[in-house]
Amino acid sequence: TSQSKEFDPLGPLPPGWEKRTDSNGRVYFVNHNTRITQWEDPRSQGQLNE
């Protein structure tokens, strides 16, 4: 049996976020709370300043 979700070392996405793949196979992220899409992983944002 194959799992639909692959193991992700960053852990789960924040509430309201979804990881998607476009027609070219590039991963992007959707924030359903604000209806915004972005290329950057929301889990890695904010760690750059620490």
Rank of each mutant, 00 (worst) to 15 (best):
V30T: 10
P42E: 01
N24C: 13
G11R: 06
R20P: 00
N31A: 00
D8F: 02
R43Q: 02
E18R: 04
P9V: 05
T37N: 09
N33Y: 00
R20V: 10
K19P: 06
N49G: 11
L10V: 12
L48V: 12
P14H: 12
F29I: 01
P42Q: 05
E40P: 02
S2A: 06
E18Q: 05
Q45L: 10
G16I: 02
V30M: 13
N49F: 04
F7D: 11
V30R: 08
H32R: 12
P9H: 14
S23R: 13
Q47D: 06
Q45H: 06
T21K: 12
N31Q: 05
L13Y: 05
H32G: 11
K19S: 12
T21G: 08
K19A: 05
P42L: 00
E40S: 14
H32L: 08
K5N: 12
R35C: 11
F7V: 08
L13W: 02
G25P: 00
S4E: 15
H32P: 12
T37A: 12
F29D: 03
V27D: 09
Q47H: 12
S2Q: 04
S44T: 13
V27C: 14
F29G: 01
S44W: 06
P15V: 15
W39G: 06
L10C: 14
P42F: 00
T34S: 14
P9L: 06
P15Q: 13
N33G: 10
P42C: 00
K19Q: 08
R43T: 06
K19C: 12
T21S: 10
R26D: 15
P14R: 02
T37C: 07
K5I: 03
G16P: 12
S44M: 11
P42M: 00
R26S: 14
S23K: 05
P12D: 12
E50V: 09
D41C: 04
P14D: 03
R35F: 03
V30G: 04
F7H: 11
I36S: 08
G11H: 04
G46A: 13
G46H: 04
R43G: 02
R43S: 02
S44H: 12
V30E: 06
Q3M: 08
P42W: 00
L10F: 03
F7K: 09
L48R: 08
P15N: 15
S2D: 15
N33A: 08
R35T: 06
L48Y: 09
P9W: 03
N31T: 00
L10A: 14
F7L: 09
F29K: 00
S44D: 11
Y28H: 04
K5S: 05
I36C: 10
P15K: 13
P14N: 13
P42S: 01
W39S: 10
T37V: 04
N33C: 15
S2L: 05
F7Q: 11
T1C: 02
D8S: 12
R35E: 08
H32F: 06
P9Q: 15
R20T: 08
R20K: 06
D41S: 03
K5V: 02
L48A: 11
F29S: 02
